[in-house]
């Protein structure tokens, strides 16, 4: 595997990429402004908006079919230390994709990794989970118990 020389596993990277794509651009901008030593970087691929076809399965688990498309913006950056960061984020926000790619590059650098995982990724993840939980609790309040005159089983 090409990651053997890296200080992170593919699984770890998938996790932080997920958090970065699901966070809002403002959150990432705020976190980025909070980083004191920002590396210089250049674009290997400038932020670009396109679409991906979302696939689903008939019956939820069977035959694959093309359900519909969604907008996605991607970006690839290379820091001066040589780390290449990638991002594919939902929507059309170029800055979101760029920031997600930058954080992806930083997180591959063991000098930054722990700090950013704790300071940024963990916080983003927690605030997202909190929002999700709030939504879920509101739905939970609409859970019903149906009563019938005779319980038939």
């Amino acid at each position: 595997m090409s990651f053997s020389r890296n200080s992170f596993t593919t699984k770890e990277r998938q996790k932080w990429m997920s958090v970065l794509s699901k966070s809002s651009c403002q959150e990432l901008e705020g976190a980025w402004q909070g980083i004191s030593e920002k590396p210089d970087y250049r674009h290997l691929r400038k932020p670009e908006t396109g679409i991906i076809m979302v696939r689903a399965r008939a019956g939820g688990s069977g035959l694959r079919f093309n359900f519909g498309e969604m907008t996605v913006t991607r970006c690839t950056v290379k820091t001066d230390e040589g780390y290449v960061g990638c991002a594919y984020v939902m929507g059309r926000d170029h800055r979101h994709a760029e920031l997600a790619a930058l954080f992806d590059a930083l997180l591959q650098n063991s000098g930054y990794k722990l700090k950013i995982l704790n300071m940024v990724i963990l916080k983003l993840k927690e605030s997202r989970e909190k929002r999700k939980e709030e939504i879920s609790k509101k739905s939970a309040a609409t859970k019903v118990d149906f009563f019938t005159m005779v319980r038939g089983d």
């Binding site: 396109g50 696939r55 399965r57 688990s61 739905s139």
Partner: peptide, 23 residues
């Protein structure tokens, strides 16, 4: 509008069994 955009690919099939359920 969508015809003006490049297509980057296909998603993996969405897993509706792992939906974050609201209803």
């Amino acid at each position: 509008y969508r015809t003006t955009l490049p297509r980057f690919g296909f998603s993996e099939p969405i897993e509706t069994s792992r939906m974050e359920i609201q209803r």
